[in-house]
């Protein structure tokens, strides 16, 4: 019998929502024969000192401490898996990049100004990331099938279509037709079009879809009567740093 995979689940600055998903949705329950959950600091104190095969990381890099933690973890594992929107694409904290830094800090932490801050960035800016499981929070189905896949030594294939594909084949009414800014056409799918199926616009939590036709999308929104600011506000909600201004342009992260 092959040795079980040694897995750790860690979090850096973040809401711990992804970790709670792993915990409450009992993602590891049916996988206990396949993997060995060595560390999960949210649930029990982290006493394991050895190396890992896979480490799942949740959260955005917001403080210099996060970078130290990341670098340490990287050295202890073969593969890093970014778990959730924050670690894959930056998530909500990255909104700060588009605002006045000083003001925001005073607004959010009026008393703790000794915090050593970094510009909020996704973890792949600091360490090498091997796999991405985006979405806020990540879906149990995806986590489970990913672990099952790696445990059996099979190739993991990322979903590579925009949200619209699943939304349309489900037969949902299009929210763009209702004059709402839905980020579906430019966002990576794989969520089963969760929000649009419930009549909520797509906020782009799975990050940008690489092959999206951004020019056509912005032109369409312009025709619908939206201006640049309104578009950017929507795009910056979850994965602001990863979106581009225009086709072939730089992402906001690269700027």
């Amino acid at each position: 019998m092959k040795e079980k995979l040694k897995v750790g689940v860690y979090g850096i600055t973040g809401c711990a929502g992804c970790l709670l998903t792993v915990l409450y949705e009992e993602c590891f329950k049916e996988l206990i024969e396949l993997v060995d959950l060595k560390a999960f600091p949210l649930v029990r104190s982290d006493t394991y000192k050895g190396n890992f095969d896979y480490i799942f990381i949740e959260g955005t890099v917001c403080f210099d401490e996060d970078i130290i933690v990341l670098n340490k973890l990287r050295k202890r594992t073969k593969y890093i898996v970014a778990l959730g929107a924050c670690s894959c694409t930056g998530g909500v904290p990255t909104i700060k990049n588009f605002l006045d830094q000083e003001k925001t800090l005073k607004l959010v932490y009026p008393a703790h100004n000794e915090l050593k801050e970094e510009d909020p960035t996704p973890i792949n800016k600091h360490i090498k990331v091997d796999y991405y499981l985006p979405q806020c929070p990540p879906s149990k189905k995806e986590i489970v099938s990913f672990i099952r896949c790696i445990a059996k030594g099979e190739v993991w294939k990322d979903y590579n279509d925009p949200v619209c594909v699943e939304c349309r084949s489900k037969g949902n009414p299009c929210l763009l037709d209702q004059n709402k800014i839905c980020l579906g056409p430019i966002t990576l799918g794989g969520c089963g079009a969760l929000c649009p199926s419930n009549d909520v616009i797509c906020y782009g939590c799975r990050g940008p879809f690489k092959d999206a036709n951004l020019d056509a999308y912005t032109n369409m929104l312009k025709k619908m009567g939206y201006n640049k600011k309104e578009m950017h506000d929507k795009m910056r909600t979850f994965s602001g740093l990863q979106f581009r201004d225009q086709e072939g342009g730089k992402t906001w992260l690269e700027k």
Binding site: P162, C164, R168, S169, G171, G184, P185, I186, N213, A216
Partner: peptide
């Protein structure tokens, strides 16, 4: 083609 979003609505419907 420049206008196409690849949203696949045409094929789904």
């Amino acid at each position: 083609v420049r206008k196409c979003l690849s949203c696949t609505a045409c094929t789904a419907y």
